[in-house]
């Protein structure tokens, strides 16, 4: 009898001692501080006026790039271009994304969304991020001659990659970033060698010699009409998404070549993004079957019921493969549509 009572007391003690160290505890102050740094970072990268040069390393490849960014009465503008190799450039202005790529001087634009190319509900995104990543302040460092605060974003499971960020002590601008695989090895790194935050950016810094005059300022009237449209009914189901990924977009867009419209689903966890593309093959061979990788990006392709399923994202290979295998085609989900 006495022994039994003792046991009960021991159990009660164990139970009461569990909760303070368990998951019911509120986030430690370090995590809160790291979160604030992240919020400031998003704000800084979107709202500051800056010009800088950085090194981009991805596996064995090294690139130097320059970025010019401003946010003024005309909205947010950004010009990003390569400093070595064939000239490549991305200009973002007036809700347009214009890319200049080397092959045949191909230029293309995106106007498929009325939203800004840089929208983001900071508290919402970071709130979402916190449930699947652990935020930590690692200490201090120096990047591009500037004092930096080092933040770690560690995934809580194996579905996503981790990041390490070096943020400017003064304004939280990102000075260096590293994407780490599950063993903590860098997969992709970006590091500024020079960064200037200015009250105003000189207009000439946005002028691209490669792009036709004022293409970045082209008004909406002479741009092609948007064709991507939201999908309300789809025969496709993605079951058992990795936890934390939510669907942020489901569009149908037509290729310029007049092919079948492609369905595009985007899933995001606040940091990583996964795209699923679904295109009817019409007897043609599949574009990609199996896995492929470039730096931080993984892709997995599969043919399902005569459709090409392609999953792409900056997540581990197992994640894109998992999603590709979980996709199901169920035409009975569709209401009868006219022939």
């Amino acid at each position: 009898m006495k022994r039994k009572l003792l046991l009960c007391a021991a159990l009660a003690l164990a139970a009461s001692s569990l909760s303070p160290t368990g998951w019911t505890q509120p986030a430690p102050p370090v995590a809160d501080e790291a979160k604030q740094w992240l919020e400031r970072m998003v704000d800084a990268t979107q709202n500051l006026n800056y010009e800088g040069t950085f090194i981009y390393v991805q596996g064995p490849h090294v690139e130097a790039m320059r970025i010019v960014h401003s946010n003024g009465p005309d909205g947010e503008r950004q010009r990003l271009f390569s400093l070595n190799g064939p000239p490549r450039e991305v200009v973002i202005a007036n809700n347009n994304v214009i890319c200049l790529l080397p092959s045949q001087q191909a230029t293309f634009v995106n106007r498929d969304s009325p939203r800004s190319p840089f929208p983001l509900s900071i508290p919402r995104e970071i709130g979402r991020l916190e449930s699947h990543y652990q935020l930590e302040i690692l200490g201090e460092d120096r990047v591009a001659g500037l004092e930096a605060r080092v933040i770690a974003i560690k995934p809580r499971d194996a579905w996503r990659f981790g990041y390490r960020l070096w943020l400017d002590q003064r304004n939280a601008m990102v000075l260096r970033s590293a994407l780490l695989d599950d063993r903590g090895h860098p997969v992709e790194q970006l590091m500024f060698t020079d960064l200037q935050v200015k009250p105003q950016i000189d207009e000439t810094a946005f002028q691209s010699p490669a792009l036709p005059e004022s293409s970045a300022n082209r008004n909406d009237a002479d741009a092609p009409p948007p064709v991507g449209e939201p999908v309300r009914e789809s025969a496709w189901r993605v079951e058992q998404l990795p936890e934390g990924f939510i669907k942020v977009l489901h569009n149908r867009f037509a290729e310029s070549t007049g092919r079948h419209p492609t369905e595009h689903l985007v899933f995001a966890d606040g940091l990583a993004t996964i795209s699923v593309f679904l295109e009817k093959l019409d007897g043609a061979p599949a574009l990609l079957q199996g896995a492929s990788q470039l730096g931080s990006m993984n892709a997995f392709g599969k043919a399902v019921d005569g459709y090409q399923v392609l999953v792409v994202g900056e997540v581990p290979a197992a994640t894109v493969q998992h999603i590709a295998t979980m996709i199901q085609y169920d035409p009975t989900q569709l209401k009868a549509t006219p022939p």
Partner: peptide, 30 residues
Amino acid sequence: SYLVNHNGHASRNSVNGMLPYVRMVGYQTN
């Protein structure tokens, strides 16, 4: 188009919105 399309959306939905555009430029010489 799939890859570029993905990056465009990635920049909108990630806290680190600069990286997807950097990747777009960075792929070219790989």
